[in-house]
Simulated scan of single mutants.
Amino acid sequence: MTATPFVPPLFDKLVIIGPGLIGSSILRRAMMDRDIAREIVASDIDPKVCARVRELGIADQVEPDATQAVRDADCVILCVPVGVIGEVAAQVVPAMKPGAILSEVGSTKVSVINAVLPALASRPDIAFVPAHPMAGTEYSGPDAGFPSLFENRWCLLLPLQDTPADAVARICAMWEAMGARLRTMTPEHHDRVCAIVSHLPHLLAFTICGTADDLADETRSEVLDFAASGFRDFTRIAASDPTMWRDIFLNNREALLEMLERFMTDAQVMADAIRRGDDTIIVDRIARGRAIRRTLIENHQA
């Protein structure tokens, strides 16, 4: 998908609610590129977060009251945990001006869309464009963001059937200005894809680190002292924000459980191969993993 050309700026007023890793990265990029928005506003329920955004200078204005922040906004992007997106939408949608665009960056889509739609039922004049930038780190908060976070990363767009084409085109143009590559898909397909490429790896990382933590004291200390690169990679993923990932797991439970069941079946096949000394299966699984890694590198996603 390629964005439609627009006369800059794309938005007169852009509001980011929840300036964490993703939100503060959007803010930083938009502050660098004024073709994105003339006025950039950040909002958060936490006074400490608002204060830090002011200190960092990554927004033109910081407004703790979200309903005040969104007034006269052309575009509002919800960058809060998926478990509260519906609640925040219900708060801000009544205060948005006619013709404004509402978007969000949640890692689950069926649950998020279902949570947001009730707030939009009485506001057909608000365009809703769900999106998911497939980028991130294990860090969180306004200090974690950086303007190049979305460079050459995929941003998945999930426009609804009745979403105005102009609104979709503007959100596409914004993400292209952030450096992202665009792809559209259905919410259901999105949740299954993300379950295997993102949600399941995080679940496994949290579980492996929990298993290591539960080992006998002497063995546990050796794990921490002699951790090899493989275990260190898992700990990096496991350092991610607990609240965010709790919400993701619970809001994408069906797709995640499906992928977890498939993984457990495949893990049992590998265990049986090791037990039998079946090197054909073992080598095949390793070779397939290497091939996937090479593909990621070729696609500039690693």
Rank of each mutant, 00 (worst) to 15 (best):
Ile113Glu: 00
Ala51Cys: 11
Arg28Val: 07
Arg38Glu: 14
Ala89Gly: 06
Val76Ala: 11
Ala89Pro: 05
Arg28Cys: 10
Pro81Gly: 04
Asp143Glu: 14
Pro98Lys: 02
Gly20Arg: 03
Pro94Gly: 10
Pro94Met: 06
Ser103Gln: 05
Lys109Pro: 08
Gly141Trp: 01
Gly57Thr: 14
Glu138Pro: 06
Gly57Asp: 10
Gly20His: 09
Val110Ile: 14
Ser24Val: 10
Asp60Val: 10
Leu102Val: 00
Leu117Glu: 15
Arg29Asn: 06
Val62His: 00
Gly20Ser: 11
Met32His: 15
Leu120Asn: 04
Ala127Val: 03
Pro118Lys: 07
Ile36Ala: 03
Val70Lys: 01
Ile85Trp: 05
Pro64Met: 03
Glu39Tyr: 13
Leu27Val: 09
Ile101Ser: 01
Val49Gly: 00
Pro142Val: 06
Leu78Ser: 04
Met31Lys: 10
Ala100Met: 00
Gly106Arg: 02
Ala119Phe: 03
Ala135Arg: 01
Asp60Thr: 12
Leu102Tyr: 01
Phe128Ala: 05
Pro19His: 11
Val82Pro: 01
Ala37Phe: 07
Gly18Asp: 06
Ile101Phe: 01
Gly106Ser: 09
Glu39Lys: 13
Cys79Tyr: 02
Cys50Glu: 03
Asp44Lys: 10
Thr137Tyr: 10
Gly57Ala: 13
Pro142Arg: 05
Ala42Asn: 02
Ala30Thr: 11
Ser103Lys: 00
Arg54Gly: 14
Asp35Gly: 15
Asn114Tyr: 13
Ile22Gln: 02
Ile58Phe: 12
Arg123Gln: 09
Pro124Phe: 14
Ala95Tyr: 08
Val116Gly: 00
Gln61Thr: 14
Val84Tyr: 08
Cys50Tyr: 03
Asn114Thr: 12
Gly106Lys: 00
Asn114Lys: 15
Pro64Ala: 06
Pro124Asn: 13
Thr67Glu: 13
Arg123His: 10
Val82Trp: 01
Ala73Asp: 00
Asp33Lys: 10
Val49Tyr: 03
Val105Trp: 02
Arg29Met: 11
Val112Trp: 04
Val116Ile: 15
Met96Asn: 03
Gly83Val: 08
Cys79Met: 09
His132Cys: 08
Met32Gln: 15
Ala115Gly: 14
Ser103Asp: 07
Ser43His: 00
Arg54Ile: 15
Asp125Pro: 09
Gly57Asn: 15
Gly57Cys: 14
Val88Asn: 04
Lys48Glu: 15
Ile36Leu: 08
Glu104Ser: 01
Ala59Leu: 10
Ser140Asp: 13
Arg123Val: 13
Arg123Trp: 03
Ile40Met: 07
Glu87Gly: 11
Leu78Glu: 04
Met96Lys: 02
Arg52Asn: 13
Ala121Arg: 07
Ile58Gln: 04
Val41Pro: 08
Ile77Ala: 02
Val92Glu: 02
Ala51Thr: 06
Ile36Trp: 01
Pro19Lys: 07
Asp44Ser: 12
Ile36Gln: 09
Asp35Glu: 11
Cys50Val: 01
Asp143Phe: 11
Gly23Met: 08
Asp74Glu: 14
Val92Asp: 01
Pro19Cys: 12
Gln61Tyr: 14
Val76Gln: 09
Val80His: 02
Leu56Glu: 13
Phe128Tyr: 13
Glu104Ile: 08
Phe128Met: 06
Pro130Gly: 06
Val116Cys: 09
Gly86Lys: 00
Val129His: 01
Leu27Gln: 05
Glu55Leu: 12
Ile36Met: 08
Asp35Val: 05
Val53Tyr: 06
Asp65Phe: 06
Val88Met: 07
Val53Gly: 01
Ala95Arg: 05
Glu138Val: 06
Val80Leu: 03
Pro81Ala: 03
Pro64Asn: 02
